[in-house]
Design a protein around this nucleic acid. Structure first.
Length: 560
RNA sequence: GCGCCCGUAGCUCAAUCGGAUAGAGCAUCGGCCUUCUAAGCCGACGGUUGCUGGUUCGAUUCCAGUCGGGCGCGCCA
């Protein structure tokens, strides 16, 4: 709808320019849904922007534009309002047309070809395999996967990537912790490793190691060597064990990755070294204090950063640069990296490293989506501790407490750069307080209507119904149609701005409009034309709810 | 001290790259069940958008400052 209006406006502006009425460049005008119905259905600010550049009165320009608008079935009338807005009042037929469109496109309604099949890499979660996934990872998984789904819906070829930090000091720490447990040393023992992982899962890994268990992870199989002194074997087993557990959790969460990228492979393939060498060739590094530094201040950082420590090992962000270089070389002109906001410091560093390679990677590549902290509340108190993990609430705990659908929905229901309060009691509640329940219930209600029809042997004539949508009457039905028509715009905006919360909020509003209408009208009336029209709108609503929930990875149940 | 994010109704949050009278839900109060799910619906109440300036036709939005909360500032990852 918006696109059609934009076309009408462009046509009018072009005409005015041709006639010499307006001689300036087209402004970057906005067409938006109005807040109040008095202002019509859509409003455009083109005249206000043109007033700025021409020095003429905005209302006068607006009137000219309105006069120049070509005729259209879409628009009932357009008028000048306020300081110089052009308000569009759409025809009744335009809403009915949109409902027909829903039937026509089915589960593709709301999808677009904006991405034109271009590749986009979406990296998210990327947890270290040193412990179970926690609530922060749950938010990362929900945001990242929903973004991926939104990109798919808008015509992109999406690759979900998971980067495993399976090298470095933390992994060694993990191995030492498991080894300590194998030897029967407990976390409070003086012999316990200084920065050891204290959670109960370490004991589980130790037990499986001693039992000679075999675990499958990343397409490989690792069998425990049982030898308490073989630290390498312990490390391999522990990493595989945790990868398997994380993979299971993510699969349960409805997330499947296309690429699992191992940090360790960057070392075995000498990619880290190549990055450092390349940066050196570009003259973007120097030696000082026995270490090798990146001139990151040349790229907006507040201080230069060490790449290679005096002990010869690399700092964490260098493999990060190498990994992102690999994304670039694999053709992701578009790449999104989803991170916890506590890692925002690395953002400048990684981009600086990529810049320093001197191979033309844009300054703002990759795009980052950062999410803020999650606080879990239950019974009015903050939940902080998981017995299994020791110090934090795990993703598994959360899903067990709140359910998959609620967890996925709640995690994306807020802007990612706002801190999130996750209310377990609300997520569990089977009432209208709970937005997930409310939305799913709307979907189930339509299914219920369908069942009723089946029981009463009432036949729905789709063809006839779509031809007689004009039988729909009243503001409530109109509101449902208007809400439905917003869906494609919401999907587009949510994807482009990386704001999945828009979709969550929208579905709540669509469900609200539907419930209101549902309660105001009888569906299974004797008047066949009226009945078919109402059922058609209900089915269209169900379709949009299902499409939207699908993009959130939330189920659309047929009964509650 | 420096950097990033946040501050909107009693609570949890929206507000479409600067738009018109700042919106929902919950809570509170008042209505609605012989009828397709009342697991719901309708209505009312509720605001100096933390504060002070600035930019302009117009600011919750942009800028400067200030207060408050969170997170970072390592040759840890």
């Amino acid at each position: 709808m918006k696109d059609a209006l934009r076309e009408l406006l462009s046509h009018a502006l072009e005409g005015l320019r041709r006639d010499g009425v307006l001689e300036v460049q087209f402004p970057d005008f906005v067409i938006e849904r109005t807040r109040s119905r008095e202002h019509g259905d859509f409003a455009c600010n083109a005249a206000l922007l043109l007033a700025k550049t021409t020095g003429r009165k905005p209302r006068e320009i607006a009137a000219r534009i309105v006069d120049a608008l070509p005729g259209s079935d879409l628009v009932e009338r357009a008028e000048v309002a306020g300081p110089g807005f052009i308000n569009f009042f759409l025809s009744d037929g335009s809403w009915r047309n949109e409902i027909r469109q829903v039937f026509h496109e089915g589960d593709r309604y709301g999808h677009s070809r904006t991405g034109a099949g271009r590749a986009v890499g979406v990296e998210f979660v990327s947890a270290n395999p040193t412990g179970p996934l926690h609530v922060g990872h749950a938010r990362a998984a929900a945001i990242g996967d929903t973004l991926a789904r939104l990109y798919s819906a808008t015509g992109w070829k999406v690759y979900r990537e998971f980067y495993y930090n399976d090298a470095g000091a933390q992994i060694n720490n993990l191995a030492l912790s498991v080894q300590a447990r194998i030897r029967g040393i407990e976390p409070d023992d003086p012999r316990w490793p200084a920065d050891g992982y204290r959670g109960d899962y370490i004991r589980d890994i130790a037990k499986d190691y001693l039992d000679g268990a075999t675990v499958q992870a990343g397409g490989h199989s690792v069998t425990a060597a049982k030898d308490p002194d073989d630290l390498d074997a312990i490390r391999d087993f522990a990493v595989a064990w945790l990868r398997r557990e994380q993979d299971e959790d993510l699969r349960t969460f409805g997330v499947e990755f296309d690429v699992y990228f191992l940090e360790s492979s960057l070392y075995t393939d000498a990619k880290v070294r190549q990055v450092v060498d390349r940066i050196a060739v570009q003259g973007q590094s120097y030696e000082a204090d026995g270490a090798l530094w990146l001139r990151s201040t040349d790229f907006g950082d507040d201080k230069d950063r060490v790449m290679r420590k005096s002990d010869g090992t690399y700092t964490y962000f260098v493999p990060d640069v190498a990994y992102h270089l690999s994304k670039w070389e694999r053709g992701y002109k578009h790449a999104i990296t989803e991170l916890g906001a506590d890692h925002h410091g690395s953002l400048t560093r990684v981009r600086a490293g990529l810049q320093a390679l001197g191979i033309g990677i844009p300054k703002d590549w990759p795009e980052y989506v950062l999410h803020q902290m999650v606080t879990v509340m239950k019974g009015g108190e903050e939940v902080k501790i998981s017995k299994r993990a020791g110090s934090y609430v795990t993703l598994r705990d959360l899903v067990e407490m709140a359910g998959l659908d609620a967890t996925r929905y709640f995690m994306i229901a807020r802007k990612s750069d706002s801190q999130l309060v996750f209310d377990i009691d609300l997520a569990r509640s089977q009432t209208n307080d709970n937005p997930v329940y409310y939305i799913q219930y709307a979907h189930a209600r339509v299914c219920s209507v369908q069942r009723q029809m089946h029981e009463r042997s009432i036949v729905f004539e789709q063809h006839q119904a779509l031809a007689h949508l004009d039988r729909l009457d009243g503001d409530y039905a109109r509101s449902v149609m208007v809400e439905i028509s917003r869906f494609p715009e919401i999907v587009e905006t949510a994807a482009a701005n990386h704001e999945p919360h828009l979709l969550a909020q929208y579905l709540r509003e669509l469900a609200g409009a539907f419930h209101v209408w549902y309660n105001a009208e009888q569906f299974l009336v004797d008047d066949e034309g009226l009945r078919n029209a109402r059922v058609a709108l209900a089915y269209a609503t169900r379709q949009v709810l299902a499409n939207g929930l699908g993009m959130l990875g939330v189920k659309a149940p047929e009964a509650m």
